[in-house]
């Protein structure tokens, strides 16, 4: 049952989208209150937001450049990049454009979730970009990267890690202690590779890169050519 809304305090909702977070602020109350609610929500999870790319949906609110600019600066102080502001208000759209921000999410929003067509398969995060130094992906399920993982980047997955590209950063699979997790890459040359609690540092490269899969065997992390078996 919906509770009747007793105050007009704006509500803030946060959800993950394809690359980053979408923060939605509803239309209730004054913008200053909405901004406060937003900063409160973020402040309470500062760790989670650190370094995040955020898109903001402000519904029908017309925002002036001073308001939007101020918010961007405040978020910036949390280490958050405000890259897009989505709104039905033409005024807000114009403001966002004048401040050099996007007014649409770069890719169409995913279709509403329906029950998975097939019962087989597990939750995975697909990352379709180059991971550069300083970037960190942490996900409780599997992580699939289409692109290269540069030195200084880090992937932490509860499950397996699959890199369709060159893996040169740090990869930690089975981070919750799952020793049957694996790490595969077209070119497996990590700075450091961990599976559950076991650590392997990269052996020197021998010649041409070939697809490899690393797993724990007899308590050791070993990499073997991936032959599809």
């Amino acid at each position: 049952m919906e509770k009747p809304v007793s105050s007009s305090r704006p509500k803030v909702a946060i959800k993950g989208i394809r690359d980053g977070l979408l923060v939605t602020v509803d239309d209730a109350g004054a913008w200053e209150d909405a901004q406060e609610a937003l900063l409160e929500a973020i402040g309470s999870q500062a760790e989670f937001f650190q370094g995040a790319r955020v898109a903001l949906d402000v519904g029908t609110r017309p925002l002036k450049a001073a308001q939007m600019g101020k918010l961007r600066d405040l978020l910036g102080d949390f280490g958050i990049t405000l890259w897009a502001v989505v709104s039905e208000s033409p005024k807000t759209q114009e403001t966002a454009r004048s401040l050099g921000m996007a007014t649409r999410l770069s890719r169409p929003a995913p279709a509403p979730r329906r029950p998975a067509p097939s019962p087989a398969g597990e939750e995975a995060l697909l990352v379709h970009r180059t991971l550069r130094s300083g970037m960190r992906i942490a996900f409780p399920g599997h992580v699939v990267v289409i692109g290269n993982v540069h030195p200084g980047a880090e992937i932490v997955a509860g499950g397996n890690i699959v890199v369709w590209g060159r893996l040169r950063g740090v990869a930690h699979a089975g981070a919750d202690g799952n020793e049957s997790a694996v790490v595969c890459a077209l070119d497996l040359s990590p700075t450091q590779l961990r599976i559950a609690g076991r650590v392997a540092t990269a052996p020197p490269r021998r010649g041409r890169p070939a697809p490899e899969m690393a797993s724990v065997k007899d308590g050791q992390v070993v990499a073997e050519p991936w032959d599809g078996k």
């Binding site: 790319r53 990049t81 890259w83 897009a84 921000m101 996007a102 970009r129 180059t130 991971l131 550069r132 130094s133 300083g134 970037m135 540069h150 030195p151 200084g152």
Partner: peptide
């Protein structure tokens, strides 16, 4: 070069 890679990533994140 490592620090440049980091900055390039941040530039990409800022679109």
């Amino acid at each position: 070069v490592r620090d440049a890679d980091r900055i390039i990533g941040l530039i990409e994140a800022e679109e």
